[in-house]
Simulated scan of single mutants.
Amino acid sequence: MPEVKGSQLFDFTYSTLTDKGCVDSANLSFTVYEEYTAGVDTLLDVCDNNGVFDLFDELEGNPSGTGTWTGPNGFVTTDYKAEFDPTTADGGVYTYTVPDNVTPAGTTMCSGSEATITVTLYKSPSAGEDVAYDVCRSDLEIDLIDYLDDTANSGGVFIDVNNGDLPIGNLLDVSQLVAGVYNFRYEIQGHASCLLDTALIEITISEVEVPTASNQTFCAVDGETVNSLVANNGYDFNWYDTAIDTTPLPLGTVLINGEDYFVTAVDENGCESPKIAMTVTILPFGDDNCESCIKDGISVNGDNVNDVFDLCNLPETYPNFELNIHNRYGVTIYKGTKSTPLFSGKSNVSGTLGKQLSSGVYFYVFDPKDGMTKPFQGNFYLSK
């Protein structure tokens, strides 16, 4: 039987000879009708970054091109072609229906059928845009995930472009790499039906030269802090208490005698060099090499010049200090802290409270109360 499209009329003539040698013949005519097939039900996974395609091409079996389509949200076609655009179309069940094949008189010769394509639509993930960052070798370990574009989705893999396109983890120990430019590719596919999306990450690793810093000596009476330390060969510097600390010391931290301090150079981008050590020596109060800022006399004559016992910057350096002033008989006539007005020639202790003291030599003891620095003492002359 030849292939029939729609319907086809076949005519046959049968001829024979009679006993008397005459030709006898008969004609046979019949019409063969095609049985339209809709194909086989199909499950189809589609990603929104796939190209436009025809649903008819996705039907399994051997469907006839005589049907029409219906689908979600009023989807309908006038013939067998059904263009599907994943960026705008909906997922769901799409039905392909082929009609009955009927005679001109309306008699159904072959019944129609239908087949469905169930489309599951997946959203494609994004690798984000290409990005470039500067990082510091002193950052030690970075997470490449933190350097992805904000629109990137998680769940992808990183590829080392400079090292034979080998997959790597997201953690990168930059301290083990020399300064330079490194390229990584972020790849993410999501569902198997989606096309691979990629983005490049360019990482420039900067390394800062170590600073220079010598051992330094200060006077306890000056109450020097970390802010007084000096280093060279750097845009800026950070000072640390130990070689493994990661948080710099506050600049107001009081220096400690015999303590090792560690310094890094910091460049304009905030990158740090390796640490180097230096030692601080604090000369005690009264050392011959130190000049005290505390004057050896005050005059309370009302001219507003040198009329209080000025402690310089000691209250800021030692905020928990205590100051005791005694007369020549050893009697305490003044007790001071950071919240107490400076001594101006008047007693502030019970028994002599508010009394204007006489001229003469007075003795003081300054106790830093910081748990490290020893108290120091001296004397001054009070005049009127």
Rank of each mutant, 00 (worst) to 15 (best):
N304Y: 11
T337Q: 12
L311W: 09
P341L: 00
L311C: 05
E272P: 08
L323Y: 02
L342V: 01
T279K: 14
G345I: 10
N320M: 09
I282V: 15
S299I: 15
N320F: 12
F321T: 01
Y334H: 09
V280E: 06
F309K: 07
V305P: 01
V300W: 07
L323E: 01
P341R: 00
K338E: 05
I298T: 02
V308H: 13
D303R: 12
T279S: 13
S292N: 08
L342E: 00
V300Q: 08
V331H: 06
G345S: 12
N289F: 09
N301A: 09
E316A: 15
V305I: 15
F285A: 05
K335R: 14
C312T: 07
N313T: 14
I333E: 04
C293A: 12
D307V: 13
P319L: 12
G336N: 04
N313F: 04
T317R: 07
S273M: 10
N304R: 13
D287K: 01
S344D: 15
T332Y: 02
Y329Q: 00
G302F: 07
I276P: 09
N324P: 00
E322M: 10
P319H: 11
E322K: 14
N324T: 10
F285K: 00
G286E: 08
N301L: 10
E291P: 00
P315L: 02
F321E: 05
I294L: 14
C290V: 09
K338R: 14
G297H: 09
S273N: 07
S273E: 07
V280M: 06
C290L: 09
G336P: 02
K295E: 10
T281V: 14
D303S: 09
V305E: 08
R328W: 06
D307C: 11
E291F: 00
D310I: 04
D307F: 10
S273P: 11
N313M: 03
K335G: 00
D303M: 11
P284Y: 06
V305F: 10
L342T: 03
T279E: 13
I282F: 05
I276D: 08
K335T: 12
I276V: 14
V331D: 11
S273T: 08
H326A: 11
T317Q: 10
F321H: 03
I325H: 03
E316V: 03
P319T: 10
I298K: 02
S299Y: 04
S299H: 03
G345Q: 09
E272L: 14
L311E: 10
V305A: 12
P315Q: 04
L311S: 12
G297S: 14
M278D: 01
L323I: 06
Y318W: 14
G286T: 08
H326R: 12
I294E: 04
M278S: 11
M278V: 01
Y329W: 10
N327T: 07
V305Y: 12
C290F: 05
G330S: 11
D307N: 15
E322R: 14
F343I: 01
A277W: 01
L311P: 10
N313P: 01
A277S: 15
V308Y: 13
I325S: 04
T281G: 07
E316P: 00
K295F: 02
D288H: 11
I282Y: 03
T279N: 15
P319C: 13
G336D: 06
D287H: 06
S299D: 11
D296K: 15
G336M: 03
V308I: 14
E272C: 08
F285H: 03
S344V: 06
N313C: 04
F343T: 04
M278F: 15
D287R: 01
S292L: 05
R328T: 07
